[in-house]
Design a binder for these strands. Sequence first.
DNA 1: GATGAATGAGGGTTCATTCAT
DNA 2: AATGAATGAACCCTCATTCAT
Lengths: 210, 210, 210, 210
Amino acid sequence: MQTQTISKPRLDRDARREAILDVAQDVFLEEGFAAASMSTIAARLGGSKGTLYNYFKSKDDLFNAYVERRCLWQSESLGLKPGETPLQALNRVGRAFLAFLTDDLTVRNFRLVVAEAERAPEISRTFYEMGPARGLERIAAFLSELQAGGLLDLGGDPTGAASDFLGLVQYRYFKARLCNAVSAPRSAEIDAEADRAVATFLRAYGTAQR
Amino acid sequence: MQTQTISKPRLDRDARREAILDVAQDVFLEEGFAAASMSTIAARLGGSKGTLYNYFKSKDDLFNAYVERRCLWQSESLGLKPGETPLQALNRVGRAFLAFLTDDLTVRNFRLVVAEAERAPEISRTFYEMGPARGLERIAAFLSELQAGGLLDLGGDPTGAASDFLGLVQYRYFKARLCNAVSAPRSAEIDAEADRAVATFLRAYGTAQR
Amino acid sequence: MQTQTISKPRLDRDARREAILDVAQDVFLEEGFAAASMSTIAARLGGSKGTLYNYFKSKDDLFNAYVERRCLWQSESLGLKPGETPLQALNRVGRAFLAFLTDDLTVRNFRLVVAEAERAPEISRTFYEMGPARGLERIAAFLSELQAGGLLDLGGDPTGAASDFLGLVQYRYFKARLCNAVSAPRSAEIDAEADRAVATFLRAYGTAQR
Amino acid sequence: MQTQTISKPRLDRDARREAILDVAQDVFLEEGFAAASMSTIAARLGGSKGTLYNYFKSKDDLFNAYVERRCLWQSESLGLKPGETPLQALNRVGRAFLAFLTDDLTVRNFRLVVAEAERAPEISRTFYEMGPARGLERIAAFLSELQAGGLLDLGGDPTGAASDFLGLVQYRYFKARLCNAVSAPRSAEIDAEADRAVATFLRAYGTAQR
DNA sequence: GATGAATGAGGGTTCATTCAT
DNA sequence: AATGAATGAACCCTCATTCAT
């Protein structure tokens, strides 16, 4: 019972914190930072407002914690998979990237962070460094790997090539998604668009022998 | 003096309306829609809140008017200029587009509209149709013109090519700008990045004879 | 033309004043004093708010004028009509009184005046003196006339008898109407109730020979 | 002490609610619903506006609660008391009824409810059903009791007789009180008027043997 | 640690009134 | 005499935050 009283609260506290962040995420994504109210979050949580302030010292603090947690999430492994040709890998990554970017959660989260960029610059900057910037680096590394495999010639600028790759893949849908001008594309649409972008990319960066 | 007494009020009213929108734009861009308060706008205007409501029947109405006015602005002429080679034109357009997109006003306005996409979907959708969507079409038309001049081979999909062009040109800076991760690039940086993107584009879409 | 310029404005001014009062009456009756707005009245009038203030120096003033005008209206002639027996006259007056009291306009006007009795005691007091109090006197005089005809014996207190008469006639419907608990009674209902009240009244005040 | 920690908040909350209603009643009665402001109520309460909204979700809600509480109050027992003759009982009830009706609180409350009859018909209707309508029924039952005792002959229409009784008793003062045309009658005046009305009533409904 | 009542500043909005034209 | 833009006080209501229990 001693261990209980010592260890259990600790676990409980972390779990409770996570639960709060889960609810906060929902509310923030649905209503935006300013329109979201601590009352709403507390009510959905089934707890009291006071409790919220036991875990996060302010609404801003809660928002910070939410963004930080979001950033820790996005970490799938890139890189060639066994038994995959470089071309197949490029197509797979293009599709995965586009699917991720057009996903509802991604889009709404992006809106949320961008909305607060003026008011809370550090937050959006952190988000950018942890998210898009790291993604670009990982794509650059991935493309270098493909270059080593002979598929590509990046011309000595892997980051530039990565930027081009991502630009090609996402332009058609991302802005439109942000603006609510289109709903989330279905899988087939994503594949078609990604494949088209990869084809363009290969015309610009592919080696003759591909 | 007769024309005065007749026309002056009319002009005054329109001018006042514009002045209000100017101030509202500043406040909206700085604080976002939700955080912006009618009190702040009235105070900066040097008038009373009541006056605001003589011109716009609600905060939403004011925001709508702001977005509408923004949409009417962006309409420069594209197309080949006299004495310009197709290649020069492509470079010029690429630079102009990137300069526009990374401009402070553009970025902050984009943030603002996107922030309200969940709450007011029609507004952001309209913005998208009037802004990015029309821009894409105009670029597509422009590229077709260059194709006619022999510089490009769009492979029968001018819109796809336009999307690729814009994706290549903007990816490096736009997201970063949105997230406040970088300040507005200087002219030289814009030119370098645009030129690089154009080079990539030409490797993918240029004809042999270029 | 001189008479025109002199006399016409005078007429116009009175007519305009009446028109304003007509509109104000509608709005006051519909919304109550506090909820009625000068803007609404001006808008319905098709004029500007400034004009309103040219005719009435405040909202209270307008309300005063409305109540005063209302009081001047109610003045039908009571008294025996030629070829009518005293009993017939009593029944006729009872019915007329009840019809008047349960009429929509009467009820809503009563509500309106009573609502402001705390805030503006003189107004409701004036209304009472001009309306119900004078009505009571006229009924007393009327009953005295019938007494002279031998139908009634008022026991030396015509006002008391008049009060009893009116109390008997109106109790069933008036409060309920004020409270919106019943809609305006139809003619047959009014007649039946008035006749019943008259019968009671005659049992209390009728002479043996009736 | 356990009961304290459990029951005290509960009592406090109810007590606070009652205190708010007490203050709200004062303010509503003095200024009317529309003119009463939540700020005034909060200030008189010595609390903040926010607290008001913790107990009542809107001004309308507060008003509803006030009316409901008023309705629960008025419930004295009628009926013959031991050692009382029927005639004494009738006089007693007449006086009590008139005293109640001309009481300041009754009059002002009536004004208040009637004032909102157009805007909130359900409220005034409920008030009527709970108050005057039930009062009428109780008087009818009371009169029937007296009839059984041989004092009265209601002619088979107890409700009609009750209506007559109440009409006779109240007409002289009630309207005048509503209109602020007279101040609350003193006890002697009330008794005299009630006795007079009872005498009239007995002439109309009394049996020969009384 | 959890609660939820209390706070008070501030939100958007309305409105009677004024005044220059 | 008529207009209608301008005002600013006041309205109802919300909310992030605090604190006694």
